[in-house]
């Protein structure tokens, strides 16, 4: 039995993005997403970015329903313009707080936004002060549960990759360069394409850096090592 008002809510996501992986380094954050939007397990849309540049300090990446995220992009853009009205750029903490309120309010209406969001960035005033420059990664789940991290993998990546990412982070003692952080993310992506059937090997690495600002990464491709497939006897 279908009720009319159920049709107006995202109670089942349709076109979705999978994991987001992000990591801090000394003076910024790198965020990696693959470039596919899936319809169930079909790779429905290829070459789609799952990251959104808010301004020169903040980047938002998402996993979950793509339509909801496109709507959120519009909300975020309006927020950024609202802050510009009094000569401010919205910072990652403020945007994280705002989106948390938004996602929580929507879950309270039993009409959730089907997204896990990663807000990455650097506060404007910390950008100019190298000593206190602390990059920000904030996570918000669909139900409005929000927290800050130094590195994260969401979606199915939370099950598969959190430990791998954390291990590489700890090996470096948390003092990691940008190149090293990117290498970790790429290794993590390789693991997702082996294990997550909705992950793609086309990906991009966006970054927020205290000097370079926000850069949406170029499209890259990883092949991985499929030699083991030859010895897989389950498929004839």
């Amino acid at each position: 039995m279908m009720h009319h008002d159920e049709l107006q809510r995202t109670l089942n996501p349709t076109c979705t993005g999978t994991s987001v992986i992000a990591m801090q380094y000394k003076t910024g954050v790198v965020v990696m997403t693959d470039r596919v939007v899936s319809y169930g397990k079909t790779a429905r849309y290829k070459n789609v970015s799952r990251q959104y540049k808010v301004n020169d300090n903040v980047l938002v990446a998402f996993g979950g329903d793509h339509a909801d995220f496109q709507w959120l992009q519009n909300v975020i853009e309006r927020q950024a313009l609202f802050w510009k009205r009094f000569d401010q750029e919205i910072g990652p903490k403020a945007l994280h707080g705002y989106l948390t309120s938004l996602l929580y309010a929507r879950r309270c209406k039993m009409n959730p936004l089907w997204n896990t969001l990663i807000v990455a960035g650097i506060e404007e005033e910390e950008k100019n002060n190298k000593e206190t420059s602390t990059p920000f990664i904030g996570v918000i789940t669909q139900k409005g549960c929000a927290y800050q991290v130094k590195h994260v993998a969401t979606g199915i990546g939370a099950m598969l990759l959190n430990q791998a990412v954390e291990d590489s982070w700890r090996k470096k003692g948390g003092d990691i360069t940008r190149a090293e952080a990117e290498a970790v993310l790429k290794k993590a992506l390789e693991l997702t394409i082996y294990h997550d059937c909705t992950a793609d090997n086309d990906f991009e690495i966006g970054s927020v850096d205290s000097e370079d600002g926000v850069n949406l990464g170029k499209e890259e491709t990883i092949i991985g090592d499929w030699s083991i497939a030859e010895t897989n006897c389950q498929y004839e």
Partner: peptide
């Protein structure tokens, strides 16, 4: 503070 968990910028307060 409710919206952003931060103190309000004085410029916004002025407006």
């Amino acid at each position: 503070r409710w919206d952003y968990k931060l103190p309000i910028p004085i410029k916004k307060l002025t407006e």
